[in-house]
Design a binder for these strands. Sequence first.
DNA 1: CAATATCTTTAGATTATCTTCAGATATATA
DNA 2: TATATATCTGAAGATAATCTAAAGATATTG
Lengths: 224, 224
Amino acid sequence: MYKILLVEDDKNIQDLIFNYFTKKEKGLFDIDIASDGEEGLEKVYENNYDLLLLDVMLPEVDGFEICRETRKESDVPIMFITARSNESDVLSGYALGCDDYVIKPFPFPVLYEKAKALINRSKGLVRSKIFTSGDISLNPNNGIVISDGKEVKLTATEYGILKVLIENKGMIISREKLLDIVWGYCSGTDERVLDTHMRNLRKALGQNGKQIKTVIRRGYKIED
Amino acid sequence: MYKILLVEDDKNIQDLIFNYFTKKEKGLFDIDIASDGEEGLEKVYENNYDLLLLDVMLPEVDGFEICRETRKESDVPIMFITARSNESDVLSGYALGCDDYVIKPFPFPVLYEKAKALINRSKGLVRSKIFTSGDISLNPNNGIVISDGKEVKLTATEYGILKVLIENKGMIISREKLLDIVWGYCSGTDERVLDTHMRNLRKALGQNGKQIKTVIRRGYKIED
DNA sequence: CAATATCTTTAGATTATCTTCAGATATATA
DNA sequence: TATATATCTGAAGATAATCTAAAGATATTG
């Protein structure tokens, strides 16, 4: 559940956005509404939003001012939604540190997807990147492998093998393919090195090493 | 210096974007160009870009396909820039995991600011903040590094290395990437300089130098 | 232009990791 | 069941990556 603050003085647009955002995928977004800039700033200070949707022309304090004040101490994602489409207004918005500047009118589904994309980006959730198999998890982003809750230190080769297996969980990966992917070639004579690395990898994973099955004559696979 | 890949078949637009982006704030952006989708995908695989600008309608492999393939293993920021303005096309783009969908024609300054905002967001640099790792803190605003409560004077190279590591705390940064980011290239012969700088950096940080771990064959990382 | 600080190069020492090997064990096939 | 084939294991040797230290090159400062 992500919390969004909408600062917009037009009741009609308030309702339309509120309805679209709260009903589309139930429970994904929770929307707070402020009808003028002063109220908007107060809410920003008092809450911890995941996204601000700011109209620019507002009573009391305008959207640009809200953005400027907010950016002094927060990197919360900010999108302007406004009818002011002058290039110079758009550039002003970006200069103040907004993330997107959407010009009215716009299709609600597009605004919705923009909001989702931006929130995901801000939380580093663009691609769900942690692979798991049983109690083993591998995060290709930082290269950390966890088995039974403890980080295990793998060598580069072991890591490469595990990555291929876990990315293709359940599939049998042939020895040739493993040699090819991890070493970049497939010679043949020294093909037995893989045995040793598989053994070391299994040992490093402890109890969970058993998740790596050998399928005789066909390769290896990992299964939870 | 951020690296951008532009995949666009129209030579004219290629030139316009290239010129605008490379000349505006000199050295902020470095632009690679691919004229068809196949070349684009190759470049994505071979390089480490900070942003992809993808046209949708392309020879060989279209922009959507590039996005889909890229997202299988990367969360690099992606912006579509295309004349296809149907709502369903826009939604397709977001469904594939893009960060923004810009409809042609657009003012170059706006595209430029969008690119900057997105890259900053992706790197967590929206608001400059103080990075910490254990008892080390680095303030990119004034370039001051504090270790164990005392300011330590780092050389520019040492500072650059620490900054990259601490901005990506916990992640393994490859030697190539460090060389590339800090020196702007990656030659190969004189690659061993890094060893020395890492040692000097660790020594300068005193006890806390131990927070910088070397991950053999894969790079270095900092952890608290 | 000298003095100083910083960066880069080099090469030997020290590890970590990879590979090889040979015998043991398991599995397929006839 | 016998035999051939495939994989596992453990130890040791080979290779490659990183660390260290010291000296030469370059840049910066007064």
